[in-house]
């Protein structure tokens, strides 16, 4: 379910924009993001927390600063839209749907 959770986190436009900013800038303080958004710093922090919990963002401690950055490897995740393996699995699972729908047939 990790992947589903990760992509659900990006379904919010603010969070998608934060991820885009981090991809451009590397490591930033949350305060540095504030001028870019029409919402308050606590609201941005809440979005950052969701991104941390879903694995998109990591945070480290540097003195009193807590800068954030994209988690390594996260952007390596690529959705596969085509290919024989995908086509095969789709066809298989459509047939499995039909089989599972046969609730009234005794085994």
């Amino acid at each position: 379910m990790e992947v589903t959770k990760a992509f659900a986190a990006l379904s919010d436009p603010t969070r998608l924009a934060i991820v885009t900013r981090l991809a451009e800038r590397g490591e930033v303080d949350v305060m540095d993001l504030v001028p870019d958004f029409p919402i308050s710093q606590p609201a941005i922090s809440r979005h950052v927390k969701v991104l941390e919990e879903s694995g998109w963002v990591t945070r480290r401690k540097v003195g009193t600063r807590r800068p954030i950055r994209l988690a390594p490897g996260r952007l390596d995740e690529i959705i596969v839209w085509s290919g024989r393996l995908r086509a095969t699995l789709r066809a298989n699972y459509a047939r499995l749907d039909d089989l599972l729908a046969e609730k009234d047939i005794p085994e």
Binding site: V3, T4, F7, D76, E77, Y93, D97
Partner: peptide, 27 residues
Amino acid sequence: MTMVMSGETDLVVTRRFNAAPNAVYDA
């Protein structure tokens, strides 16, 4: 169905079915 490459070597496929886990497992 979703199919996503994860990390260096993993491929993750997710799909929901309208049946209980024991029925999908058994199939």
